[in-house]
Design a protein around this nucleic acid. Structure first.
Lengths: 330, 330
DNA sequence: TTGAAAGCGCTAACAA
DNA sequence: TTGTTAGCGCTTTCAA
């Protein structure tokens, strides 16, 4: 009863045609006589034949799979990126190979090099500086990059970090905040842009920025940094955090230390992860539209694979989402 | 300068050996004379030869890839499961094919059937009742199932939902809660067990359980259900939620409605997602060790693929994590 | 220790 | 519309 899996030859034999015919039929490459069509349909049904994707890939050179690497899948921002990419991939009949690099650059390269042979294209979310990314190009696979590449020539999707930072800072200023701090994460390639946006808005008012740097883009890093900020020598009215995770951690710790947000200090983050809605106070955030970023990257990659000329850089707009962690200061 | 990718034949030719020799060398299947070894090493290095995984898979029937399907990657519980599975896979040289079924059963089957030919094994997190899962067995691939299968014969990994529910309920009772409610999500296969655990603890004290059912395992569903619970006819001391997302949503809405947690009502959830720590009050939760579940499933699958006889069911223990959403009631 | 030969399951010219 | 014929890049007997 246990029959070995049916191959194209089994089908051809059973239907009394050549396997080329079966191949063409299965792939809908051609029209057929009703007789053959009927026989093939029924035989395939009967044998439960499904073409072997490996054999197919080997010969066509296309795998119908896309490799996606992110830095940490448990960070809701990346989870959303994956969501968006996954949805588009599925809609186009592509499979997603996920790589969680866990913020480990050494892993990243090796994993991606291995992966590259098994996929039609790559989407890469990395912290590795462009200067060290030549191997990515050398892979010879279509790839989409998250960020604004200067040096490497890869189609990219970026959030409008600088504008987002500028916007939220202007908002803070309009609320009467004067002494603004930035809790950055310098290892991120986005850190610079966000800081620049904040600085720019501040500079327009002749204000200086106080900068702190977190050791990780995580809530616990935000918690750790809190005391040195709220109890430090430079009192702050407002703190712009590199991301929501840091902001959440900071707020929690601040509260433990007896500081009230936003009464004592306003806090904002980036990414607008859903959990910013459930902290208290709710977290004001710059929505970078993570899911849309993932979807846009996948669409772009698929277009490139299709031979279409995709625009080099897609910028997803940022949007300020106001919640209770910021308030008017008198 | 643009050279096409090197094949095993190129290497064989350049090194003056047969491609069988190259194959054996690359796979370390055999020992070689120093001369051959040296030549091969240098030629491979020079040509940058890497064996084509597709061709390899086609012939050996092994892909070194595992398919993992989850219900919603933006739910931190699943993100953690993926994290755990991904880590173990990477450590063993396996690649992860991720499927986000988005809670859509129709998608699930099709995606998994497609996937099954490209992977050596499958890990499936599903809501589909076992009775409708015969196709999964028919795929003929090693598979690991999340849950406690009754009917189908698949190695599985399960959390100890019933015990976890029992524990947290006993805790609530010991704090003096009497009128306990359960916000369930009946579509989940885990819902029954959690409810049973709560019921059992309550029954020991002769208490009844009030049950509500959410339309989704999400924060917004929790928000929606809130008013009918806190403003309903049956006042509650405590609410056990199917998961942390529901609990978070509920708490937020309760607060908006002017109810205080835990003063007016204690709230607990399941999964112990990290964001339960940042809500306020912090959310008491049953930690099901999501990441460990993912890792355990992957380990089990890999063992099965390796031909080892894995135990049929691995149960990951539950642990109560106390935070401020529960308090002694007088 | 090495190589020759026979495929794995499929597609892609090209003929018929 | 259908079939023939070559492989794709690799592994695997089996013989040398």
């Amino acid at each position: 009863m246990k029959k070995t899996i049916a191959t194209i030859r089994d089908v051809a034999a059973a239907a009394g045609v050549s396997n080329a015919t079966v191949s063409k039929f299965v792939n809908g490459t051609q029209r057929f006589s009703p007789a053959v069509e009927a026989r093939l349909t029924s035989v395939i049904e009967q044998l439960g034949y499904r073409s072997n994707p490996m054999a197919q890939s080997m010969i066509t050179g296309r795998t119908k799979a896309i490799g996606l690497s992110v830095l940490d899948i448990t960070n809701p921002h990346y989870a959303s990126v994956v969501k968006g990419a996954s949805r588009v991939a599925q809609d186009h009949g592509y499979t997603l190979l996920l790589v969680d690099t866990e913020e480990t650059p050494e892993r990243e390269r090796h994993l991606l090099e291995t992966l590259s042979r098994r996929v039609d294209g790559l989407i890469v979310y990395t912290r590795t500086p462009e200067a060290e990314l030549d191997w990515l190009m050398a892979l010879g696979r279509p790839a989409v990059y998250f960020g604004r590449p200067q040096r490497i020539n890869l189609p990219s999707v970026a959030s409008d970090d600088e504008l987002g930072a500028f916007m939220v800072t202007r908002h803070l200023l309009s609320q009467g905040h004067q002494r603004v701090g930035y809790m950055g994460f310098s290892r991120s390639l986005r850190d610079r842009e966000r800081m620049a946006g904040v600085r720019e808005a501040l500079a327009a008012q002749g204000l200086e920025l106080t900068v702190f740097n977190a050791e990780a883009p995580s809530a616990s890093a935000g918690e750790k940094l809190c005391s040195s900020i709220v109890l430090g020598r430079q009192p702050l009215d407002a703190l712009v955090c590199f991301n929501d995770l840091l902001a959440l951690g900071f707020m929690k710790a601040a509260q433990v230390l007896g500081f009230k947000v936003p009464d004592d200090i306003s806090v904002v983050g980036f990414d607008n992860i859903q959990f910013g809605h459930f902290s208290c106070p709710g977290l004001t955030s710059v929505d970078l539209h993570s899911e849309r970023m993932g979807a846009a990257a996948m669409r772009k990659l698929l277009a490139t694979i299709d031979g279409q000329e995709a625009e080099p850089l897609t910028v997803i707009d940022a949007q300020l989402v106001l919640r209770a962690s910021t308030a008017v200061r008198n």
